[in-house]
Nucleic acid binder design. Structure first.
Lengths: 230, 230
DNA sequence: ATTCAGGTCTTTGGATACAATGAGAGAAAT
DNA sequence: ATTTCTCTCATTGTATCCAAAGACCTGAAT
């Protein structure tokens, strides 16, 4: 009976809050949205989803509420639900927030990172650097960063960061598709330098690197307003 | 059909998302929780609320989902709903987040603040300094800070800050009750200095003042773990 | 006396049925 | 031709009913 939902697996893309049908539907819908199956702006009809999952519209409504609180779905009363889309300004806001709170989360996490985790981070960074397709790049990058936060036992902060990643997922995909997964070599170098700071236990430097990494990404992103065309 | 909900009134304690019964119930329940009528840990029975508002349990469930996404209510599947309570660690986390993102919000807001708004901020600060009871102190402090953010046209950032204020409201009340609304003179001085920076349009200094203000409050709060006794 | 098992009972979760609201098409008037 | 009004239909919102899952109480056995 705490204020937080359990999250044993830091990599889980879905909180999987509980066993209710609404939560299960939310989990699967979330994965579909994050996978890119639904583009932002796509309308979501309750009945369609209900039929798809073999349930009534009621748990679907609960699922939509959950996804709304995740920022993935936008509900309008008496009208319907849509997959959320961001304006460039909103996306930049999210990156500004990330830039300020993810270093904090990393600071909580760093002292608890095991050698095994650091090794795994190195593997992920190397695998990314070897070059891959867009989807793999996105998956590895997400796993890399969220794993670097896995030492933190925080509740609110971790969830907030998770939400921000989910909300911007589609635009990261669009951006990466546009410029190619290796166009920005800086990403790989920054990851390597970040790992170095983590290995040394240099919290200050790790925070600075991460903040800069997010900041640079935001500035790159803002050069492509076309990604956010309505 | 944007990703944000309208919020014309920056002071509204409730988003008042739309006209559905669930949202209206959520709005009123939220106000009751924030007013202190329900202590954290209090169980909320769906049927009680339904009867209180003359509705069925269904919109109540929606209201509880909404409040859960606000962080004010904790739902457990097949078990029930409780007014959320925070541990000291969780509350400190929220203050750490606030310390990093509220200065950012203030930076967005500052250039848009009208002379009238600055005057109103001065009135609020003066009124607080004159000394009042706990409830008035809380109301004025909340209005002061949220009004200082009212110039920002942000969406996500403003909502996030709003949620953090709501989630910690009960503990601010408990803390203020414990030490008295005037025990911390520093609050008043900080407010005055903050207004000075705002008047000069000195964004850097305003951000620094606000960050320090929140930080100091967090440190004070952490001296009283008894406030968070289960 | 304490602990464990069973059963009842309260409370939540879900499905069907109905009401109400909004959106879109079509027709008429300017 | 364009705009506006109205009517119809698709879709969401709510209530009632039923099912299921915990919680609590009672009882017996060690």
């Amino acid at each position: 009976m705490t204020a937080t939902t359990d999250r044993t697996d830091p990599m889980a893309s879905a909180p999987s809050r509980d066993g209710s049908a609404g939560s299960r539907i939310a989990t699967r819908l979330r994965d579909e949205i994050l996978s890119g199956a639904y583009a932002p702006g796509t309308r979501i009809r309750q009945e369609d989803v209900a039929e798809q999952f073999g349930a009534s519209r009621l748990p679907v409504r609960e699922a939509l509420r959950i996804l709304e609180s995740d920022g993935l779905v936008t509900l309008v009363a008496n009208t319907g639900a849509w997959v959320s889309h961001l304006s460039l300004a909103e996306c930049e806001e999210m990156y500004q927030i990330r830039e300020r709170i993810e270093p904090l989360l990393l600071r909580y996490s760093l002292p608890q990172l095991s050698p095994e985790t650091l090794g795994r981070l190195q593997e992920l960074a190397d695998e990314m650097q070897a070059g891959t397709d867009v989807e793999t790049f996105l998956r590895l990058d997400r796993e890399f960063h969220l794993l670097s936060y896995s030492g933190a036992v925080t509740s609110i902060l971790g969830e907030t960061v998770h939400r921000l990643w989910n909300s911007t997922q589609h635009y990261r995909r669009a951006f990466t598709t546009l410029i190619g997964p290796d166009a920005g070599r800086a990403v790989h170098y920054e990851h390597q330098l970040l790992i170095g700071a983590l290995r040394r236990g240099d919290s200050e430097e790790a925070e600075r690197m991460l903040g800069g990494h997010i900041r640079r990404t935001r500035l790159e992103l803002s050069k492509h307003p076309a990604l956010f065309a309505q």
